[in-house]
């Protein structure tokens, strides 16, 4: 089903037109350690192109695991994952490269190489478009360097281009990581708690920057976040995960009940199953 990819002369590859759907996940199950840990337990949803989707949920609810399935950093135990019309688990290595080139991934821990310059990190976003290994920024062609500057400029760090990345502040490093993702010219950006290790003020700025760039480039965004308030400002849609299951899936508009959102974060299971357990037992959960 993936044979209809079209390769262009300049190495750019067109992914087949997948209609209006960017991501389609069906009955996705993921277990770790030979089934002893269930991280995802039958997750299904689909995301139309251009949507800004935020995934919320407690720590350990499976947000990262879900996002990492979309560019095959994880392989599903069961169920199907379809991104840009491609059956992700079935892709060959070469096809996977093409898919990953079209998906930008922003990590919570930035995942940039600290000891090289910012521009080199941004340039590494273009690796999927060129052939051969690269060591040092000067090994990339000039037109890519110009492009990298443009992306750095968008995140406001053009003047830091030749500085070592680990000399930047956390917020600046995450902006470099965002520039690297944009450098890929992606169709989808996956962001896994992109601002979780930043202070609230900077979090807002970095998040705004990411969303703004994605809207400009008409990129579909799937972002996991802990700060619901930060999400409500711009998200089109909210998905809540709990113990690997979808417990909330709702557009963000007046009809969205704030309590329902906060329920995703409550100690107690909103479906009530565990609530009864607590009430029945005499154990004081605090001691």
């Amino acid at each position: 089903m993936n044979s209809n990819m079209v390769s262009l002369d300049d190495g750019n590859v067109l992914v087949p037109d997948s209609g209006e759907t960017a991501v389609r996940v069906k009955d996705l199950v993921k277990t770790f350690d030979n089934g002893s840990v269930t991280a995802l337990d039958g997750v299904s949803f689909s995301v139309p192109k251009g949507q800004l989707l935020v995934i919320i949920g407690l720590s350990g609810s499976g947000k990262s695991t879900l996002l990492r399935h979309l560019n095959r950093l994880h392989i599903p135990t069961e169920g199907s994952v379809e991104v840009l019309g491609l059956d992700v688990p079935a892709l060959t290595r070469a096809e996977l490269r093409i898919l990953r080139r079209n998906i930008g991934f922003v990590f919570q821990q930035f995942n940039i190489v600290g000891r090289v310059t910012c521009i080199e990190n941004v340039l590494s976003g273009a690796l999927g478009r060129i052939r051969g290994p690269r060591i040092g920024a000067m090994m990339y062609p000039k037109w890519l360097r110009v492009e990298a500057f443009e992306q750095l400029d968008r995140v406001g760090l053009a003047d830091r281009a030749w500085q070592r990345t680990d000399t930047l502040s956390g917020g600046q490093q995450q902006r470099v990581a965002i520039a690297r993702s944009l450098m890929q010219k992606p169709k989808i950006v996956l962001a896994d708690e992109p601002v979780a290790s930043l202070d609230p003020e900077i979090s807002g700025q970095v998040m705004d920057l990411l969303v703004q760039c994605c809207i400009e480039d008409e990129i579909t965004v799937l972002c996991s976040l802990h700060q619901v308030d930060l999400a409500l400002g711009w998200a089109h849609r909210l998905i809540g995960l709990r113990d690997g299951k979808v417990v909330l899936d709702s557009p963000v508009d007046e009809s969205l009940d704030h309590n329902r959102v906060m329920d995703v974060y409550r100690e107690l299971d909103p479906t009530g199953a565990k609530r009864d357990e607590y009430i029945d037992s005499d154990v004081d959960p605090i001691s």
Binding site: I98, V113, R115, S124, G125, P133, R134, M183
Partner: peptide, 28 residues
């Protein structure tokens, strides 16, 4: 392994992963 994952998810090939993801961290 973090930066390496970052490089891999840009669609880099095995040699590019080696140079940008692995070697650039090992230079010192």
């Amino acid at each position: 392994p973090g930066p390496r994952e970052g490089v891999a998810s840009t669609g880099a090939g095995p040699m590019q992963d080696l140079s940008t993801g692995v070697w650039s961290q090992m230079v010192p």
